[in-house]
Design a protein around this nucleic acid. Sequence first.
DNA 1: CTGAAAGCGCTAACAT
DNA 2: ATGTTAGCGCTTTCAG
Lengths: 339, 339
Amino acid sequence: MHPTLSEVAVRAGVGTTTVSRVINGGLNVDPATLARVQHAIEALGYMPNHAARILKGGRTRTIGFVIPSIADPFFSSCAEAAQAVARANDSVFTVLTTQNDSKTELDAVRMLMRHRVDGILLAPCNSEDDVLVKMLSKVAMPVITIDRPIRGSGIPAVVTDNSRASKSATKHLLEHGFKRIVCVTRETHLYTIQERIKGYKEAMTEAGLVPQVDTSVEDVESATKSVEKWLSSPEPPEALFTLKNSTTIAVFEVLQKFGIAIPGQLALIGYDDFQLAEILRPSVTVIQQPIEQVGRVAAELLFQRLANFEQSSPDGLFDWENEQLKTKLVCRASCGCQV
Amino acid sequence: MHPTLSEVAVRAGVGTTTVSRVINGGLNVDPATLARVQHAIEALGYMPNHAARILKGGRTRTIGFVIPSIADPFFSSCAEAAQAVARANDSVFTVLTTQNDSKTELDAVRMLMRHRVDGILLAPCNSEDDVLVKMLSKVAMPVITIDRPIRGSGIPAVVTDNSRASKSATKHLLEHGFKRIVCVTRETHLYTIQERIKGYKEAMTEAGLVPQVDTSVEDVESATKSVEKWLSSPEPPEALFTLKNSTTIAVFEVLQKFGIAIPGQLALIGYDDFQLAEILRPSVTVIQQPIEQVGRVAAELLFQRLANFEQSSPDGLFDWENEQLKTKLVCRASCGCQV
DNA sequence: CTGAAAGCGCTAACAT
DNA sequence: ATGTTAGCGCTTTCAG
């Protein structure tokens, strides 16, 4: 089916080494021979067999990318950037999804290891997964986590400054004069959510206020329930801080349905920007994450480590600082700012 | 670094064949031996080397996925579904992006071929690419195109019913009584866009009206220009039909900025649904595509062909019909419907 | 039930 | 400048 290197050699009337030399840059090959070999390659439609090269001990030129979901805009943007870096390093990019399930994640990593990928970019679903860490550490394969670290694992992580951003967003609401600010979320087992809650609480506490976290909102349905509950409370909140994209949108939809004035009756800031945040009325103030940067930096780090692996001491490899990428508060109308 | 099969064999005090049998299901192996081998595998943390297996002639258990962009919600949803199918077939899923550039695309396919992927799912950027087709046909590797076919290539395609959907959307506007309906787009070299224009034109012509296609709208800037032009024309359009997601959003934004009443002054239908179409005011009527289905069906088809490849005649392999998946017109407020 | 040995396609000494 | 040869880790006849 696929012609082999030795078939090319026969056709060109040379040895296999010569062909090998040609396909690897053609150094130290007589121009005439070179031409003849290239001609044979062309004629046969020869393409080096990757597997054979790998077997010989080379790199697979494949990196693994393990994320909760490809359809999630955050991770797909990340993936886009990481893929570009992989490509620039002459590598392909294998994506496996976990749905935030530890078992699926373990299975994904196992698959990648069998495939002998050169390295893995991973958004772990659990911030303390001993099994995973043990498996990862068994092989000397570079791993970098994205968006979420694995605590105490020594695995380098590229993350954003969740708690700082969250704190500053909360402060922004406080500066608008709101006091009863509710933090709205779910999935509190995630590192990012925990950090964001932490930042919110810090800001509130420092302002001498009592933090109030509603961890029950996931979709429109649960958002409806929560909104109803707040509105009927004696001291209804003045502002909402939603901790992720889909939560922000669900809450917005419900507020709109109930005809609640934003920011008049209830102000809103959301963590994570989204495509139409600017076009909605009111436009939604958000914390914008440097998504592509996360993917790009993580991938670049990975290839850098890969390069180190090839030449030098594995000792110098584990002293990476966690990269903390900067987020940005983008003020639009929903927080009470004039725009 | 990675323990090998023969290391396991030594440790278990058996031959390599026996170990091979164990990792391939453990048939015809004495239970006691089996246990011993499994123990050795466990102890060593052994994992079969994929490359070696491939070299022996096996499948790579890898499929390639070539799309314009991962960040595009359409293709990322597609990818999510296809990845799941790959996973279910014990295969990994390698993504390469083309940015709709033929050269990048060719390069992507070449990389995948070198990696000896078992098959390719491809959204070709060009509907008549001889070079690509020739390359693809050289190796007997199953390829299925998604979203866009390559005309006359004999490559099976999984697409949606673009022209029919477009026609019915146009008809819907006509039924609302609009006569001056402008079709708004760009990138007319794409198959999908061509089909959509075709459907629009058919509906208009059949209604005895003159089709009017504006092929200059790409982003907010170009949308602004076009909107200004229409409004200042003696007979301004009554309705707009935008042919893709980002166009719809750009146009919506501009109309909103100009304070134009939708659908009062200008009705709107967009091709392709988007996350907030329902939440915008007015909510936007769209043609909804079965995105995940495209990915899923294409992947399933691919694995089906792969299965055929393994056992039987390559002749029976090319008799697939193009799969045409059904889209749906989702009426919301922007077309003039009451919701 | 088990093992010895050949070889998948390639690269890298080591000759020449 | 070019060829010979020995494996890389695995599967797979073919013999026990």
